[in-house]
Amino acid sequence: MPVSEQNTQLPLVETTPKRRFARLLTFKDALRLPIIIWQALFFIAPLIFMVAMSFFIVRNYRMTEAFEMKNWLKMMSRDYFWDSYGLTIGLATLATLVVMTVAFPAAYTLAFRVSENTRRWAVFLLIIPFFTSYLVRIFSWYVILAESGVINAMLGYIGLGPYIMLNTQFGTIVGYMTLTLPLVIILQTLSLANIDWSLVEAAHNLGCRPWRTVFCIVLPLARTGLIIAAVFCFILSFGDFVSPYYLGGSKPPTLPILIVDTVKSGQQWPRAAVVAVVMMVTLFIVAFGGIAAAYRRRVR
């Protein structure tokens, strides 16, 4: 083809599938850019700084750059750190089990037993608690859980109680549920609502009993969403400071409380960073484990 002819066809070349694909790729990259920048600035960079800070030292209440292992050795050698670690994992696991169990019947009902309109309203009502401050919601439990509070007053009418609920691990779990239950119900509802209902009907038609249908059909089909909900519940509970401090009485302290204690006394940010790094590693393991389980292909 003559050169002059090639030149006249240049504008047409731009619209060939290859070029169009290249342009689309650039456009997609541009769309990805904000999240990449955001994560780099506000997640990766602080994370790197936090890890580096765990090797710094504090002199006269002032953090000094260094590379020393003493913070790690100090925290790892303290029984109270491991006690707090075990307690935090235990409470977060318990909260996840309780919340997932309590949320499931509600989510099942919203997904399968109510109209589309009712479900929409229910999800909206579940979002409403997030309009108020979490701290305010936690403080409102004082009125309900106190020895002279609403629950004990009601139990008193039938000759029961009073029971101590505030400043106990029960109080902490109630706080964790306040934080996570609405979110978990929403996630479970969305995940259950996406199940192909004809599969459930097929199971029924083939004589499968209701409970078996739930365990053999519904749960496996909604597995991904349910595991993601559980992971969210664990992550939020594991890192929560407010509930164990205000409803659990910091007795004994969880890791987030230990971070605050460490900073409050002596401004030991590097030691707090050690605790935070351990928490991050734990959450990474839980999150990646959860995701792997959620998207694992079923092998028969």
């Binding site: 106190a146 020895e147 401090y245 205000y246 659990g248 009485g249 007795k251």
Partner: peptide, 16 residues
């Protein structure tokens, strides 16, 4: 329990 100012105040006030 171990309390900050607000927690100390509340727990004494409500008799906890």
């Amino acid at each position: 329990g171990y309390f900050d100012y607000g927690g100390t105040f509340n727990s004494l006030k409500n008799g906890e």
